[in-house]
């Protein structure tokens, strides 16, 4: 079962792939939260990459938390 260490390792792997997310491990679920607090859109390729990395770190599921708009700004992420 993934733990805080897995979450930290996943956070680093995501960062290395260009995704700036904080990761909260909830059993097999990796809950991803944009590190800068700005809502992020993930395209299909980005979702596949995130899912693959999560699975490599022992998570069966990964979910992107939706944040309220911060002053209307947003970012798109597909490195």
């Amino acid at each position: 079962m993934p733990n805080d260490g897995s979450a930290q390792a996943l956070r680093q792997a995501l960062s290395a792939s260009g995704f700036a997310f904080d990761v909260d491990a909830r059993e097999g679920l990796a809950l991803l939260r944009p590190a800068d607090g700005v809502p992020i859109a993930l395209d299909a390729a980005g979702r596949r990459r995130v899912q693959d990395l999560a699975r490599q770190h022992g998570f069966t599921h990964a979910a992107l938390e939706l944040l309220p708009p911060a002053g209307g700004s947003c970012a798109s992420s597909s490195p």
Partner: peptide, 19 residues
């Protein structure tokens, strides 16, 4: 709080999540 699963719909998803 609301999150979107990046893989999308999976039948029996919680069975997988909980092993």
């Amino acid at each position: 709080r609301v999150a979107i699963d990046v893989r999308g719909f999976r039948s029996g998803s919680l069975n997988v999540l909980e092993g």
